[in-house]
Design a protein around this nucleic acid. Sequence first.
DNA 1: CCCATGTGAGACAGTGATGTCTCATCCGGG
DNA 2: CCCGGATGAGACATCACTGTCTCACATGGG
Lengths: 189, 189
Amino acid sequence: MGYCRLMAVDRDHVLRSAADLLTRKATATMDEVARAAGISRATLHRQFAGRDALVRALEAHGIAACGAALDAARTEEGTAADAVRRLVAAIEPHAGLLAFLYTENQLFEGEEQNAGWTELDERVAALFRRGQESGEFRLDLTPAWLTEALYGLLASGAWAVSEGRLARNDLTHMIVELLLGGALRRETS
Amino acid sequence: MGYCRLMAVDRDHVLRSAADLLTRKATATMDEVARAAGISRATLHRQFAGRDALVRALEAHGIAACGAALDAARTEEGTAADAVRRLVAAIEPHAGLLAFLYTENQLFEGEEQNAGWTELDERVAALFRRGQESGEFRLDLTPAWLTEALYGLLASGAWAVSEGRLARNDLTHMIVELLLGGALRRETS
DNA sequence: CCCATGTGAGACAGTGATGTCTCATCCGGG
DNA sequence: CCCGGATGAGACATCACTGTCTCACATGGG
């Protein structure tokens, strides 16, 4: 019947519009999410058991997108700086979703977080560590902090864009240049 | 009677513990806030008409703290880079509160934000602009973006500290060095 | 000592969101 | 043509939080 394929398509569409809306208004209601997706609350509830399930699906989606971005950026190849540039360029389209998930994780204390994040953190940190070992990056900023800073700048950038304080086209450049400018070892004056 | 002074002291104590708690768990209940402050929900409600009033009081507190930090940092004196160092050092103690307020502002769409923020934004941006005009800072990163990035790094840093991924003592250094490393014009190679 | 003030404990209704349900409708395939 | 599956609309109970209230207590000053 292929109804599975159709449901998957719808599911993706719902996830996409939910990400869009929740980026702008993190406290959006299930009803608002449904309306934003052009479906009824009942149908939304048929596809996602509840708000938790929706958020967890968004989380899985975001983790997958980050993983794909890390793959696409080929973080093992070339200079670490160029790899960071490719990585930010690849992740930037999902900055809004990331910003939502980033704060959502801060919203609750304790509450074990999805293990996928740990792995992503490790892959990103490994990139910064490689840059340190190759002599490109400063040693006084830890890979863990640079990773955290990358998330923070992505989130700040996404919000600045959504509030019109920053041009979407400049987002990648602004993030990369600020991050790398700090992470790159400065010429020994 | 002096009961005004006493109430003010209690109020500050409540604000402080509320800031502490809300930094870790932004969705904390009025009951949790009260318990964290060691008072009953009734008393909390007597001091702050409601959750909105509490958040707005925290916002005013945060704005005042930032304003004081800007004053204390004497952002008009010396090199812009040193001024940024002083500013971050002065603001860092309030990073947790700032992180809470920063996301709280993103939580709702529309909802005019407190005018105090605009003024603070302007003062911070002016500092970065001064650095650009004096030739210290790069011109391709706009003052508005640098301002936003400062907030983002403060928030990221505060969370990283509260989750044990970053030592509190390193916070200022990590933020300043990453931010300035990017904002400082690099030596013409 | 007595009283006033501030407080804690708890009851209470109101509110908004959630999750579940039913039912009418629509649409595509047999 | 008819029927099964999916949908939208809406009713409904539930739940957590809020904001308001009352009452008992205890603490400190007159």
